[in-house]
Design a binder for these strands. Sequence first.
DNA 1: TCATTTCTGTAGCGACCACTAGAAAAAAGA
DNA 2: TCTTTTTTCTAGTGGTCGCTACAGAAATGA
Lengths: 232, 232
Amino acid sequence: MHPMVNDDGTAKASTGPDTDSAGAAGGGKARTKSRGRPRSFDRETALEKALLAFWEHGYEATSVSDLTRVMDIGAPSLYAAFGDKRSLFEEVVRMYGTRHGSFTDRALAEEPTARAAVERALCEAATAYTEPGHPHGCLVVHAATNCSTPEVEKSLRDRRNANIAAIESRIRADVAAGVLPPATDAAALARHAGAMIQGMSQQARDGASREELEAVAEIALSVWPRTGTHTG
Amino acid sequence: MHPMVNDDGTAKASTGPDTDSAGAAGGGKARTKSRGRPRSFDRETALEKALLAFWEHGYEATSVSDLTRVMDIGAPSLYAAFGDKRSLFEEVVRMYGTRHGSFTDRALAEEPTARAAVERALCEAATAYTEPGHPHGCLVVHAATNCSTPEVEKSLRDRRNANIAAIESRIRADVAAGVLPPATDAAALARHAGAMIQGMSQQARDGASREELEAVAEIALSVWPRTGTHTG
DNA sequence: TCATTTCTGTAGCGACCACTAGAAAAAAGA
DNA sequence: TCTTTTTTCTAGTGGTCGCTACAGAAATGA
């Protein structure tokens, strides 16, 4: 009845037996074949379809009936495989995070300075938010604003604020390392970058092209002292 | 049956007679007393309540039953006075525009330079978006994202893009007047300001304080050459 | 007083919402 | 083959959506 998380990290409602399951004392994923009727659809493919639907229309405006149509499965199959609508959305958000929404984290981890990381993040935002093949803008920014389910709204807001906190922490590290001047207002600079990314996402939704967003990003970047090693 | 616009500029469904109405040849608003049972609520007060509800929860997530509750009127009264839900929302957006959402237009009209206008707009945005007594952020930005009624979504998007176009046109005027260098990318600079305002609105929704937004605005303003006369 | 006009409350319309009971179908194990 | 397990399809559940028919209430004009 209740959703659970199984060994491949995905939330499921009733996939996998409710009994002691695989590898209670064994070696993990020994069970390769389940026992009953096999699923007639590919779970990940269906999840991708759900991602596109939620990305385009948001959590509330995407009805279960919309979902079953684009995923091409019946409602009972959806509920059996993904739990309820909220669990499905949470799983969609997780997939979005790993596939489309991790460029800022990657930039913060891989670039040598905060300045270079933000430069790369803004530049990649311009690309990602206008990429063909999926809706424009950021799902985390737009899929649960004005949502009558407060928990869903909060979960996305937490992700947005966590992103800004990560930028701020990277900036503080540079200040501590002497890469940025000690008087740097790390919180404000991080919030500026976050607001910029979110504003660019809104602009992408409103029709701005990649080139236009890149021009915006370049302007926004000029507020940073040029101390990084990443030369755009 | 069909909504109509009467002489005070407000959209109404069946307020005012369908006959030749007041002042077909007379002096305008001669009719002060209507004929039937008088309305038991103040139309503007009810509209303000609707504004707050739509502002907080957005177009879709605010149901007619929510509206009748906060406006403290019955559904038939709502429909008689405001038409359907969409007309009511449009009127709410108009009220929002005149009461809360015109600071950019005012700044563009009153400040001597584009730079000063954007500075004032960003500063007033920080104040307006965090003002107590009403929801944070901008209704035009947040009330109809992920809306399953495309016309409503488009109407707010048009307003956002019109705002940016107005900024761009003000910048072009300064370029033509020699206040800004000829090489200025007016479109990008305007879009940057628009994205900044929208990002600040999102930040306000996500919990940023007025002071935090002002710090962001100050950073964002540093991309402009300091040629204005408005000294913040 | 009475007819006319307009608004208000009740009560409910069909459509859609998220969700599910129950039976048939398709696999594995005995 | 027969049982067990799981998924599928059909057909709904109660609830809410935006919206309205209808009758009574409250005003004006005759």
